[in-house]
Design a binder for these strands. Sequence first.
DNA 1: CCAAAAGTGTTGACTGTACACCCATGT
DNA 2: ACATGGGTGTACAGTCAACACTTTTGG
Lengths: 220, 220
Amino acid sequence: MTRFHQSVTTDIVIFTISDEQLKVLLIKRANEPFKDQWALPGGFLFEKEEPDKAVVRILWKKVEIKDVYLEQLYTFGSSGRDPRGRIITISYFALTPKDKIKIVVSDKVQTPTFRSVKQLPDIAFDHNRIITYALQRLRSKLEYTNVAYSLLPQYFTFNQLQRTYEIILNKKLDKRNFRKKFILLGLIKPTKKVLKGERQRPAKLYQFISRKPTELKKFF
Amino acid sequence: MTRFHQSVTTDIVIFTISDEQLKVLLIKRANEPFKDQWALPGGFLFEKEEPDKAVVRILWKKVEIKDVYLEQLYTFGSSGRDPRGRIITISYFALTPKDKIKIVVSDKVQTPTFRSVKQLPDIAFDHNRIITYALQRLRSKLEYTNVAYSLLPQYFTFNQLQRTYEIILNKKLDKRNFRKKFILLGLIKPTKKVLKGERQRPAKLYQFISRKPTELKKFF
DNA sequence: CCAAAAGTGTTGACTGTACACCCATGT
DNA sequence: ACATGGGTGTACAGTCAACACTTTTGG
């Protein structure tokens, strides 16, 4: 059987929450095509490299991030998506709490910047479409899994948890109902810690019982 | 930027229902590796070929099927999955009513056979894993979309519809509740036709209002 | 004492589930 | 006449959504 040779890349949609906004990490492209435009971090797979490993490598090399929630999204391969021709990209999405990230600006890293999904700049290739797809996936995963843990620090207040949901789903939720449902689900447990020092009543801190991906039966 | 060259394939999980069983189409491999073993239909992408187009081409060439429900599943690329090394496969799943298929046995087509998912033979590569993944996807899609239309003929009885669900979900459903829910969802409508000639009371024939993929709010 | 977020229950509407009998036809 | 699947309604339980006030702290 004949074997044809292909160019395969990966692109990664990295989400975090900061300033009460859902943000995506973009970098300025160093090379043509789309030189100096914003794009998702990504790159070509090495020969014989596994896609999952390539993602980890690229995350580290381009934006100095590791140990994040990672999941394959979709493989895009239409001819129009890259001016160099039909280039296949296996897209991934990543979730991380914002305090885990220290973006180092240097020559190596191409000014990675978190941008609110509500006000994205012009973006190279079909990366806008990939971001839209990732956002859909994130929204539905919120509703039937415990992925929220990967956006939050180990200890968090109920309010932080609820804000995470509200920001991503882009709608207000009822405080009492939210508590009830979440406690009933049995995903989180209270700790003995409280968050003091704010200028209101201190809030109990909770933690996820398991910080591994888990599916639920029914949800929001 | 350096570009590396890769081998990219596609594999297709084609489901249908016949003899009250959910079945997958397998073919006998004509070449090494795994010569003469059962495997999913698939093949290498041509240079510059779009993955979606490659799937259509391969479906036609290998099993003489066209115009089926098609959806991308997942991209597998671990090193262990093919003895020839790290070969990437973009997997798809397809759904078709059984009467739409006329499997022609010839030299060209490698004895394609539908096998019940409950009694699969030894299967080449990691295709077992791909089938398991496809089955999960099919099950969850049944619950929040109208994909069932792609497994049924244009006109069908309520019982055929219910059996489709029961076979795939692998559990009995309540007849009255099933009707109620389905009618309430507004996905199907009664026709003036009936199915006569069986040895019981003739059944009303229904059809899907839309035979396009649609998502529902809530479901089973 | 004031501002700010923390924390807490009840009710009504809706949705899902369990369940049994008569009907129309072919043989 | 009988065997076979076709067709129909009700009641109970569980879940979801709406809603407002008191508490605890910092300033």
